[in-house]
């Protein structure tokens, strides 16, 4: 398996006020899968994503990615792991407001050893003609596409998406999901999406349902649907 969580725990606070956001979770994900993590608010799905993305560190258990244990890396090693292995797509895009669309994507040049061509990545999300515009001049959907282009340009193995359509209308959301799906199928990227929209489960290779920090169940779809095939 490309990704393995074994008995992973993330506790916050100390003493009596300890809160287990993720509580002894174990699962695996294969390379190139389209994975959907479902759950209500506070279920622990975002924490799970943050642990996998090296944005947060586990307080117990072990996380292995591409055969390498990442749950015990130091700050700089984690930074390098995020740079080379992970691409993030956020709910609120998190673009650098002082950089143009193209510059936001080209930012990867100074982080990653072998990035993709920034203009090419932008063209891939159909934003070639908006290259010179600043985030504030783009619509929400366009900003999210820039954010995806930035994630692609790093040429990562794994794309982590935290509520990528949460701030978008449904039509635009579908376009974004199609792009992510396409990336998974055509470029063999592992795409993991955190959402509370259960409909998306029909399109996933693997669905992880969470509740109160634990995994309720994991389902593997033998025949996942295309994005357009489901009713939104």
């Amino acid at each position: 398996m490309q990704i393995e969580f074994s008995n992973v725990t993330r506790e916050y606070g100390a003493g009596d006020r300890k809160l287990k956001a993720v509580d002894g979770v174990s699962f695996g994900i294969d390379a190139g899968e389209f994975v959907v993590i479902l759950g209500h608010s506070g279920a622990g799905k975002s924490t799970l994503l943050n642990l996998l993305g090296g944005m947060d560190t586990a307080t117990g258990g072990e996380i292995t990615v591409n055969g390498r244990v990442i749950s015990n890396l130091n700050d700089n090693a984690l930074a390098d792991y995020r740079a080379e292995t992970i691409g993030f797509v956020f709910q609120f895009y998190n673009l650098i407001p002082t950089l143009t669309a193209l510059e936001n994507v080209a930012l990867t040049r100074s982080i990653v050893r072998s990035p993709l061509d920034a203009a090419g990545a932008l063209a891939m999300v159909d934003l070639g003609e908006h290259a010179g515009q600043f985030p504030a001049q783009l619509s929400g959907g366009e900003q999210q596409r820039v954010s995806i282009a930035r994630a692609i340009a790093k040429n990562p193995d794994i794309l982590l998406c935290d509520e990528p359509t949460g701030a978008l209308d449904s039509d635009t959301g579908i376009i974004i999901l199609e792009m992510l799906h396409k990336l998974c199928r055509e470029q063999r990227k592992t795409v993991i999406i955190v959402t509370h929209n259960a409909v998306l489960a029909e399109c996933a290779d693997r669905v992880i349902r969470m509740r109160n920090g634990k995994i309720r169940d994991i389902a593997v779809n033998a025949e996942p649907k295309a994005i357009r095939e489901v009713t939104w």
């Binding site: 700050d75 995020r82 673009l95």
Partner: peptide, 10 residues
């Protein structure tokens, strides 16, 4: 924080 997430070292 965004830059840090993208993998830029401190």
């Amino acid at each position: 924080a965004t830059l840090k997430v993208l993998g830029v070292r401190a």
